Simulated scan of single mutants.
Amino acid sequence: MLSLLSSLLLACSNTAEYKVPFYTDASYTPIWKIDAQAKNNLNHIAPFRFTNQYGRTFSSEDLKGKIYLANFFFTTCKGICPKMTNNIKKIYQHFEGNPRVLFLSHSVTPEIDSVAKLKAYADANDIHTPQWELLTGKATEIYNLARKSYFVEEANGLSKDSTEFLHTENIVLVDKDGHIRGLYNGTIALDAERAIEDIDALLQE
């Protein structure tokens, strides 16, 4: 009995409450309190390897120790993508020059969005920074990463495959350990402000 009580007290003492919640699955149910062991077993973003707007390889290895926002777009999009890009730019401007914060924009039409197209899009939107990667690669890999790892379409995405077009305004925040910590509507300015607050909090962890 004493041993059980000691174990429970130890578990409680190892449990921490976070200012920014964790999300472990497509339901995006927030977890505010978690112990160290459970934290280590949380969902991690799967490894990936893509090509950026400069023709250089960018992979999950480049994200070790980094906090980042991930979104999915295409260069010919005239609807939600321009709004999303503009709101991400506001977030970027807040963290400009901070190498601990990165931004990843994955093309959902990689068969169209070549390196040259991504570079032209970056130039047109004044994206000239090593902190913001525009990424292209195999469509199947991008779609699976978006739906099965970032849960960017939330629960609806789990039943879809790489033949179904991916188009979402959601932006995902990932911490330095590869855990999902936020989901935001990229077309809403208030959500951009919320993302800034959450990233500021993660920088203090």
Results as ranks from 00 to 15, higher is better:
Asp62Pro: 03
Ala124Lys: 15
Ala36Asp: 15
Cys77Ile: 06
Lys78Glu: 15
Thr163His: 11
Leu63Gly: 04
Arg194Met: 10
Ala155Lys: 13
Cys81His: 05
Trp32Glu: 12
Glu153Leu: 10
Ile31Phe: 01
Leu166Gln: 02
Thr57Leu: 11
Ala16Ile: 10
Ser7Gly: 07
Lys119Tyr: 10
Met84Thr: 13
Tyr28Gln: 08
Ala189Ile: 11
Pro30Lys: 06
Ser105Phe: 02
Asn14Gln: 14
Asn40Trp: 07
Asn41Gly: 10
Arg181Asn: 09
Pro21Leu: 07
Ala36Tyr: 09
Val108Arg: 01
Pro99Ala: 10
Pro21Thr: 06
Ile127Tyr: 09
His94Lys: 13
Val174Cys: 06
Phe73Tyr: 11
Trp132Thr: 01
Tyr18Ile: 06
Tyr143Asn: 02
Tyr184Ser: 07
Gly55Asn: 08
Phe72Ser: 03
Phe151His: 00
Leu190Gln: 14
Gly182Tyr: 09
Glu111Val: 04
Asn86Cys: 04
Asp191Pro: 06
Thr85Phe: 01
Ala116Phe: 09
Val174Met: 04
Ala26Thr: 03
Val152Cys: 02
Pro30Cys: 05
Tyr92Lys: 02
Leu104Asp: 01
Ala122Asn: 05
Thr85Arg: 01
Lys19Arg: 14
Leu10His: 10
Ile127Leu: 09
Asp62Phe: 06
Lys64Ile: 13
Gln131Arg: 08
Ile67Trp: 03
Ala11Thr: 13
Asn41Cys: 07
Asn86Met: 11
Leu173Trp: 02
His128Gly: 06
Ser13Ala: 15
Gly178Cys: 10
Asp175Asn: 15
Glu141Met: 05
Val20Asn: 03
Pro47Leu: 09
Glu154Asn: 01
His128Ala: 14
Tyr92Leu: 01
Lys119Leu: 12
Leu158Lys: 01
Asn156Ala: 13
Thr29Leu: 09
Thr129Tyr: 04
Ser107Tyr: 07
Gly157His: 00
Lys89Asp: 04
Ala116Gln: 15
Gln204Asn: 12
Ile91His: 00
Glu154Arg: 14
Pro82Gln: 07
Ile142Glu: 02
Lys64Phe: 08
Asn98Val: 05
Glu111Trp: 10
Phe103Ile: 05
Phe165Lys: 08
Thr29Ile: 10
Trp132Tyr: 08
Ile80Leu: 14
Tyr68Val: 07
Glu141Leu: 09
Arg194Ile: 06
Ala195Arg: 01
Gly65Asp: 09
His94Tyr: 10
Ile31Ser: 03
Lys66Gln: 11
Ile80Thr: 14
Phe72Val: 02
Tyr68Ser: 05
